[in-house]
Design a protein around this nucleic acid. Sequence first.
RNA 1: GGCGGCGUGGCCGAGUGGUUUAGGCAAGGGCCUGCAAAGCCCUGUACAGCGGUUCGAUUCCGCUCGCCGCCUCCA
Length: 455
Amino acid sequence: MLRLYDTATRRVAEVVPAGGGVLRLYVCGPTVYGPPHLGHGRFTLVYDVLRRYLEWSGIRVRHVSNVTDIDDKIITRANDEGRPWQDITEESEALWWAAMDRMGVAMPNEAPHATRYVPQMVELIGELVSRGAAYDVEDGVYLSVAEVPGYGLLAQQSLDSLRSGARVDVVAAKRSPMDFVLWKKAKPGEPSWPSPWGPGRPGWHTECVVMSLALLGEGFELHGGGSDLKFPHHENERAQAVALGRAFAAHWMHNGMVEVGGEKMSKSIGNVTDLATTLDSVDPRAYRLLVLQSHYRAPIEVSTAQLSAASQGLDRLDSLARRMDEAAAATSEAVESEPASDLRAAFSERMDDDLDAPRAMALVFDAVRSANAMLAGSDVAGGLALGRQALSCASATGLLTASGRAVSERAALLAQQRDRARDARDWTTADRLRDELQAIGYRVEDTPAGTRIYR
RNA sequence: GGCGGCGUGGCCGAGUGGUUUAGGCAAGGGCCUGCAAAGCCCUGUACAGCGGUUCGAUUCCGCUCGCCGCCUCCA
């Protein structure tokens, strides 16, 4: 059973699906006002790995991740560019899903949009107001944090110490600097929805409580997001649920940040690298492997050097897969033998231990080496069986081996010619043909069955 | 100022109170090969510094130094 570090209790604890059924997972998604960056890539990979691993383990997962399609930044950009705000969100969301697709990140089961849940948000805010936890002032409706028992749980700080360090602009109307906005009243020309407090739009923190509870129900198993979301975003989501007396997430998971030169990658610092640009420059699986080779809670440095090291590692997986295909083809009988050692069990043990993917992957790479040795030696059946386990474990993290792009007719012809030259021991011609193949982008390896080319 | 985290061999990055090692990349040597490539084998004697606890610490405790995150929008 999966055990994960819980930000709220600061302990590693089992994540158990209620009633042994489906594990409900809510992950805070993007605000769609621009193209995704490497940090978005990391968090989506982390939760994709989690989800795929669970499913591979036979646990059903209901994965919900929101799209924030109304927000100050969206409005700002729309105004700057003189475009309708829906243009910005539609365009940005399309970029988002395209990038997810390229990374092999599975679509959430539901991807609710904030703008579709405004009535439910208005209703929730109304309840908070009627309970006396929220108050209506000139520019919006605010939640009174002092009314919430245990505020500061995720921040690991008391309300007092949070208040003393508060850097928020003091809004005169707010009763406490820590109070946060649930409903923003619209200024002229801003997009708005009707409400008992006048036209306006929901605050960010309200959207996630409403959609997670609406789609997953109370007491859902796991709520995740980037570690920068712990406070105030997740704290404030939770605060609303607490103020309503509703059970919220049972377990909180947060992933570490992507860093550049030891510094967090963030839009406010301006050191962002566009995700699509990176995916253009390397095999997208290399980013996944890079993410897998560090612990999800630790920060990771993403650089071209790191990515290329990861793609070298990926080659080991791909080349094992190729070797296995050939070995299986050469062995007429279907080899069904299961190896004595159960790699999958050991792999699961490590993944279950707070998603220790680095150690789990170390096990996979160990198995790759052994399988290669067996296939090269006399134990082809054993090598195939172990190799299959290794590739299965890799696939549990979403790391599929590449089937390779199709070989062109011309390349196939050159390879044939090279085989003939080699049969004739005409090394000059053989070498020339190899150079030609490499020049058109193929990798060339000699095998007992002849020239193997791939790209 | 408050809270939290980190400092591991050439690079990245796990982990552990003691014997036998993470893993990936890179490097060197070897096997294989017509030559390569791929693959396999071997090699590196790392745990910021200073104290303490201990029979024994990289691993526990304290301090020092350095770095980072959150406390404002942020994945």
